[in-house]
Design a binder for these strands. Structure first.
Lengths: 149, 149
DNA sequence: AATAGATTGTTGACATCGCAACAATCGAGG
DNA sequence: CCTCGATTGTTGCGATGTCAACAATCTATT
C-alpha cells in the first residue's frame, strides 16, 4: 500500500474520532456531563453492583489512575457517585453509582444510543463489519510497532 | 443496521484514534515534541513560506484560537517558530518556522511516515479505500446530527 | 513475624482542550 | 472622516490527560 493513502487513512481515523468527541460533548453538556464522565457512568452502570476501584476505572478508560482521582472527585461533588471503602483492601475505594447517578444514566444512555444510531444510519452491516476489522488491524499495527530505536 | 454493531464501531474509531495519539506521543517525545506541536510543524512546513496566522492554525487544527496562543508560546520558547508581524494587518502574527524548526521537521517527518507505513502495512489498498469511505460517512452522520431540540 | 517489593490513591508540574470576556485593530456605511 | 460591528490574539477558568514521586497498605519470601 502506498504511503499517501496510509496518511489519509490515519488522518481520517483521528478526525472522525475528534468529531465524535466534539459532538458527544455537545450532547452531554446539557446534562452537566463531560465525555469522560459519561464513560465512568457507563462503566459503573453496566459493571458489578458493588462498584469498581479507581484503578479498574483507569484501566478500562485507558487513562492513568491519577486522572481518576479528579474525575471521581467532580462526580462525587455532583452527587452521581460515592466512594465506599473496600472491605478487603484498605487502600482502595469502591466507586459506586448513587441513586442520582443511576437516574442520570437512565436519561443519558438512550440519548447516546440514538446518536449512535443516527451516525451509523448510512452504513450497511457488511460495511460496518469490514471497517471494524480494518480498525482492529490498525490498532494491532500501532501496538506492534513498539518504539524502535 | 442494529445498534450493538454501531456502538462497537464508534467505540472502535475512538479507541483506535486514542492508540494512534498515544503511540504518536511516544514517538515525538524523544524529540521534545507533542502531537499538537507536530501538527503545527507539519502545517508550517508544508504551508506558505511567509507563515500562517494563529487564526489559520487554529482553523486547520480544528481547535479554538485561544489554544494556539500557548502552543505557539511554547514552540517559540523552544526556538522552532517565530512570530513575525503581518505587514497588512496589525492584529495578526505570521507564525513562521525558524531554521531549527525546519531542521526538526526534516528529522521527524520521515519517522512519522515510517510509522504510518508500518501501521497500515497489513491493509490492502481496497480495504483502505473502503474504510476511508465509511469514515467519511460516519463524519457526515455526526455533523448532520445538529443537536435536536 | 519481619522485611522487601508491589500496588493504590493522591498530589504537583506541565500540556491540551473549550468557552467567555477583553483590548486592539480592521472595514464598511453613513 | 467617523462610528459600529466583526475579527485577532490574549487571558482566566475549568476539565482532561501524562508522568514522577509519596505515604499507606498489601503480599510474598525468608
Amino acid at each position: 500500500m502506498e504511503n499517501d493513502l496510509g496518511h489519509e487513512l490515519t488522518r481520517a481515523v483521528l478526525t472522525t474520532a475528534d468529531t465524535f468527541l466534539r459532538e458527544g460533548q455537545r450532547l452531554f453538556r446539557r446534562h452537566g456531563l463531560t465525555a469522560a464522565q459519561y464513560n465512568v457512568l457507563s462503566l459503573l452502570a453496566t459493571g458489578p453492583a458493588d462498584g469498581m476501584s479507581q484503578r479498574e476505572l483507569g484501566d478500562l478508560l485507558v487513562v492513568d489512575r491519577s486522572n481518576v482521582t479528579g474525575l471521581v472527585d467532580r462526580m462525587e461533588k455532583a452527587g452521581w457517585v460515592r466512594r465506599a471503602d473496600d472491605p478487603q483492601d484498605r487502600r482502595v475505594y469502591r466507586v459506586q453509582l448513587t441513586a442520582a447517578g443511576r437516574r442520570l444514566w437512565s436519561e443519558v444512555a438512550p440519548l447516546y444510543a440514538q446518536v449512535v444510531a443516527q451516525v451509523t444510519a448510512a452504513l450497511s452491516e457488511s460495511q460496518a463489519r469490514a471497517t471494524l476489522k480494518v480498525l482492529h488491524k490498525l490498532q494491532e499495527g500501532a501496538v506492534a510497532w513498539e518504539l524502535p530505536e
